[in-house]
Amino acid sequence: MTTTNTPTAVTTTSAAAAAPAPQPRTVKWVDLKAGDCLADPPPTDPAVVMVSVVDCGQPHSAEAYLRAPIPVNAALADVVTSECTTGFQQYTGATPGAGRYSSTYLIDSVQDRTSDNPYPSTVICLLQGADGKPLTGSARR
């Protein structure tokens, strides 16, 4: 009986495992920053303090695109609309309402009438899908 040892080639293939999607994090909505994407629509109930922020590559309901101080006793709707419109154009390169996105806002009103702060509140502008469907990817240009 004759035994022959034949060398065998062993090929190994290593595939890089896809990194798991980052987990949502919970933050106070007053702490939202431009580029934060919300898992759910912006809160309308004043009792809601916390929101879930997800990676913008995942489906999300809204994206914060601007934080801006606003003056006390201002014609709120006019000031907010102006700030959010300008911020929207700078963030996306598009005009609000003229395409894929709609715009909304939240106001963090920390008005302290005893201080001499002419800008005691902050508007947080957010964009959403114009069709109401979830977004995937950032709108930032």
Rank of each mutant, 00 (worst) to 15 (best):
77 A>D: 12
106 L>P: 02
75 A>K: 14
74 A>F: 05
102 S>W: 04
97 G>V: 01
108 D>W: 11
95 T>Y: 03
106 L>W: 05
72 V>I: 10
72 V>N: 10
69 P>E: 10
102 S>L: 09
103 S>I: 10
105 Y>G: 03
111 Q>F: 03
61 S>K: 14
66 L>C: 13
95 T>Q: 13
87 G>H: 04
113 R>C: 12
85 T>N: 08
101 Y>Q: 06
106 L>Q: 07
84 C>P: 01
100 R>C: 00
76 L>R: 11
110 V>T: 12
80 V>Y: 04
100 R>P: 00
88 F>T: 05
80 V>A: 09
68 A>S: 15
88 F>G: 07
107 I>P: 07
63 E>Q: 15
79 V>C: 04
62 A>P: 12
72 V>F: 08
101 Y>F: 15
112 D>S: 10
103 S>R: 04
105 Y>F: 14
82 S>D: 15
101 Y>W: 12
71 P>H: 06
74 A>V: 12
84 C>R: 02
112 D>H: 07
87 G>W: 04
66 L>V: 15
78 D>H: 12
65 Y>L: 15
79 V>M: 01
64 A>D: 14
87 G>Q: 05
89 Q>A: 10
110 V>G: 09
105 Y>I: 00
90 Q>N: 06
102 S>K: 13
83 E>S: 05
69 P>T: 03
73 N>H: 10
74 A>K: 05
101 Y>T: 03
99 G>M: 06
75 A>R: 13
59 P>A: 11
99 G>H: 09
74 A>Q: 12
84 C>Y: 00
86 T>W: 01
106 L>F: 01
64 A>C: 15
105 Y>V: 02
107 I>Y: 04
70 I>R: 12
95 T>P: 00
105 Y>Q: 09
82 S>Y: 11
77 A>E: 14
102 S>C: 04
102 S>T: 14
85 T>E: 08
88 F>Y: 11
63 E>L: 12
108 D>A: 15
73 N>C: 10
62 A>V: 08
105 Y>N: 14
64 A>R: 11
92 T>A: 03
